[in-house]
């Protein structure tokens, strides 16, 4: 089942603008339940793409369907936003309330969920992201990673089938990053929520089922991380780097050692090195 489908999606900010569009005729299909990472450097159009997934931006050309609903149809907008939740970069600018649980309740409240049901959803969502103990805290006293997890809980409480995260870790410290990523992976694994993770950190893509690389408004690579990352020269050519593990393998191969390029995790990498050098 395809939860997201785009057809010839083209976007330019200004309708009059005859210049280069930001998104150039993208065709994309995303299978429900998968964990998809979208990688690209600044200005590659990846955030613009994300904003098309729940009708914040509407295509200048082409179509976007969310679970069969066309995002351009205004009266389906609430259903679309209920299906695809979105988490943004800056946690401070997406938290609405002064108390954690009130903020998590914001989405369900807007959807008109009955009060007792909201209580259940809020508690479950906070437990899902591991922030239940903080439910009565003030958000501004939490760390960046905790705030971002609260923001994710706010989306989870809406029970969406897909969550789009637009560089959710860009403003976080390493431990906050790790917590957020673990949370997102767990949501995907345990609740079957489709995840679309927009990022420019290579390392965050390693655990994904599918990796889409964007450059200049186009998709330049699409496959499993194991298929995409070994294409080191192509990635570097479009201004991206590869994970440190792949980089190391690449340099060693150039120096004439017989090493696999698809050793993505540190463990795999260490094992491969051990086999060659021991």
């Amino acid at each position: 089942m395809k939860i997201i489908r785009t057809e010839k999606l083209t976007f330019r900010y200004d309708a009059e603008d005859k210049g280069e569009p930001i998104l150039k005729s993208l065709d994309l299909e995303i299978e429900e339940g998968t964990f998809v990472a979208v990688l690209g450097h600044n200005g590659s159009g990846k955030s613009t793409l994300a904003k098309h997934m729940n009708g914040i931006l509407l295509p200048s050309g082409g179509k976007v369907w969310i679970d069969g609903m066309d995002t351009a149809e205004e009266d389906r907008l609430l259903d679309i936003r209920r299906t695809v939740g979105m988490v943004f970069q800056n946690p401070d600018n997406q938290i609405v309330a002064n108390v954690v649980e009130d903020d998590v309740a914001f989405g369900p409240e807007n959807m008109g969920v009955p009060s007792p049901e909201i209580r259940i959803r809020v508690d479950e969502a906070l437990k899902d992201v591991g922030m239940y103990e903080y439910r009565t805290h003030a958000p501004h006293l939490l760390s960046g990673g905790q705030k971002q997890r609260v923001a994710i809980a706010g989306i989870v409480a809406m029970r969406p089938r897909c969550i789009v995260l637009d560089e959710p870790t860009a403003m976080l410290d390493p431990s906050g990053r790790r917590d957020v990523l673990e949370t997102v992976h767990r949501l995907n694994r345990e609740h079957g929520i489709t995840v679309l993770l927009i990022t420019h950190h290579m390392d965050e893509c390693i655990g994904a089922d599918r990796l889409i690389v964007m450059s200049d408004g186009q998709i330049i690579a699409d496959g499993t991380p194991r298929e995409v990352f070994p294409r080191v020269e192509m990635l570097r050519g479009s201004g991206l780097d590869v994970p440190a593990t792949v980089g190391l393998m690449f340099e060693l191969r150039k120096a004439g050692f017989d090493l696999p390029l698809d050793a993505l995790s540190v463990e795999e990498c260490a094992e491969a090195l051990y086999r060659v050098f021991a």
Partner: peptide, 26 residues
């Protein structure tokens, strides 16, 4: 800038004014 981002985030969370809104704490 914050106001703009917040408005987008609120819209993404289905905010559409007070109509049909329920409350966690009644």
């Amino acid at each position: 800038r914050r106001a703009d981002e917040l408005a987008t985030a609120m819209e993404s969370r289905c905010y559409h004014g007070g109509e049909g809104r329920t409350k966690l704490k009644v």
